[in-house]
Amino acid sequence: MTEAGLILELLRGWGMVGALVAAVFLTVGLDRIDADARGAYIFRPLLIPGVLVIWPLVLWRWYLYETGTERWENRYDPPRKAHFTVGWLMPIGICLIILAGLSVRQTAPTDFEPIQLSAPPETAQ
């Protein structure tokens, strides 16, 4: 099996597990963890793509809510400790990526003789 085939199989497995988690979570789990979602079924298909991608996080949060270890007072408090560091690392990383891309840029072959292109002939209509 090639690397591309292996990656495709891993993505297919991730998607199948994500589809199973989405089916169970959106039919059973969402009602259990969010009282405002009870009886609201129209928006649930909109959540399917997100649950397919981040199903491990969905399972972890669901587990925390079910076991009661979730600290509800911190539910809407985003983690801001790393914002300053990430705010500096991202632009520096972008600059380094651009510089690396410019430094490994290929040059034109020396044995290639360029030719001048001419305009196509006009056709009478």
Rank of each mutant, 00 (worst) to 15 (best):
V58Q: 01
G15N: 08
F43M: 06
A124G: 03
W60Q: 02
I33T: 12
A35N: 12
P78A: 04
V53R: 00
T123I: 05
F112S: 03
L96T: 04
Q106I: 13
A37T: 02
R61W: 12
P49C: 14
M16E: 11
I7W: 05
A124F: 09
L26E: 03
V28F: 09
W88D: 06
R12G: 10
M1D: 06
I97H: 06
T110L: 13
L11E: 11
I7T: 06
W14T: 01
W55Y: 01
M1T: 09
T110S: 10
E9V: 15
L10F: 05
D31Y: 08
T110V: 13
T110A: 14
Q106S: 15
A22I: 06
L64R: 08
W88K: 10
W88R: 12
R71S: 11
A40Q: 03
T27W: 14
I94H: 02
I94L: 15
A108Q: 11
A100M: 09
R75A: 14
L64M: 07
P109E: 03
R75Y: 13
S118I: 15
R105W: 15
L64G: 03
G39F: 02
I94M: 12
R61L: 05
R105F: 14
R71Y: 10
E66I: 07
Y41I: 01
A4H: 04
N74A: 11
T67Q: 12
V24S: 05
I7C: 04
E3P: 08
Y76K: 11
P56I: 00
R38N: 13
W72K: 09
G93T: 02
F43T: 09
G29I: 13
W55R: 00
A22T: 06
E66F: 08
A37L: 13
M16F: 08
Y63E: 08
H83R: 13
W72T: 11
T2R: 14
A108T: 09
A35E: 14
I33N: 09
L117S: 03
R32K: 05
R32T: 04
P121M: 06
V51N: 01
L6R: 12
I33K: 04
L96P: 10
L47G: 01
W55S: 00
V28N: 06
D31R: 11
A23K: 07
D34H: 13
A35Y: 12
I98H: 02
D34M: 14
I42Q: 04
Q116N: 11
M1C: 02
R38E: 10
T123V: 07
R75N: 14
V28W: 07
G18P: 01
V21L: 01
P109M: 09
A23S: 10
W88H: 11
L20E: 03
T107V: 14
W55F: 12
I115H: 03
M90N: 03
V21Y: 00
R61P: 03
P49R: 03
G93P: 05
T2Y: 10
Y63I: 11
E113P: 04
I7Q: 07
Q106Y: 14
L26D: 01
E113L: 05
W14Y: 04
W55M: 01
R61Q: 06
W88N: 09
A124M: 02
